[in-house]
């Protein structure tokens, strides 16, 4: 079964919905800086609605590489448990990558993922990401504390 998803950007008016969503999905509480980045970075951060209900979101940030070039950092990508395996995550990720690729200055995309998160690693593998390195003790209060950096070129 597939469901029809409508995307919307993050604004001050609906920011709290994203917070509510993230609190339900991730075992991490994000700081206000995270959310102000989301609002500031425009279309690479998107909310996914089904039947007017927020069910998933992708949050990205653009990081400068210094030479006028930038890379896309995927901070979070999550879908509420009951709505998984319905293509929502793919929809969100493809949207952000498409937006990034429209800008020739954005050359690559990367993200952190907990080493034990096989599902996520498989998901990103399907979308052209590969493990670049491992950072031990990246997380403070979850186990295992290590993470991989997944990477994909956008050019």
């Amino acid at each position: 079964m597939k469901i029809r998803v409508v995307l919307d950007s993050v604004r001050d008016q609906n920011l709290k919905q994203m917070k509510q969503l993230n609190a339900a999905i991730f075992p991490v509480k994000y700081q206000d800086k995270f959310y102000s980045d989301c609002v500031a970075c425009g279309d690479v951060t998107q909310l996914a609605y089904y039947n007017d209900i927020l069910i998933g979101a992708i949050a990205c940030r653009l990081e400068s590489k210094g030479n006028g070039k930038a890379k896309l950092y995927i901070m979070t990508l999550g879908v509420l448990a009951p709505y998984r395996d319905l293509g929502v995550g793919t929809h969100l990720l493809e949207h952000s990558l498409r937006v990034a690729m429209e800008d020739p200055n954005i050359e690559e995309a990367y993200l952190h993922v907990q080493t034990s998160n096989d599902g996520a690693i498989r998901f990103y593998d399907k979308h052209g990401f590969a493990i670049k390195e491992m950072i031990p003790n990246y997380y403070k209060r979850i186990d295992p504390p290590d993470c991989y950096i997944l990477h994909r070129s956008l050019v």
């Binding site: 991490v28 700081q31 403070k140």
Partner: peptide, 12 residues
Amino acid sequence: GVQSALENLAIQ
């Protein structure tokens, strides 16, 4: 409800 259990966890 919901959030309170995670209130104390914080990274980044």
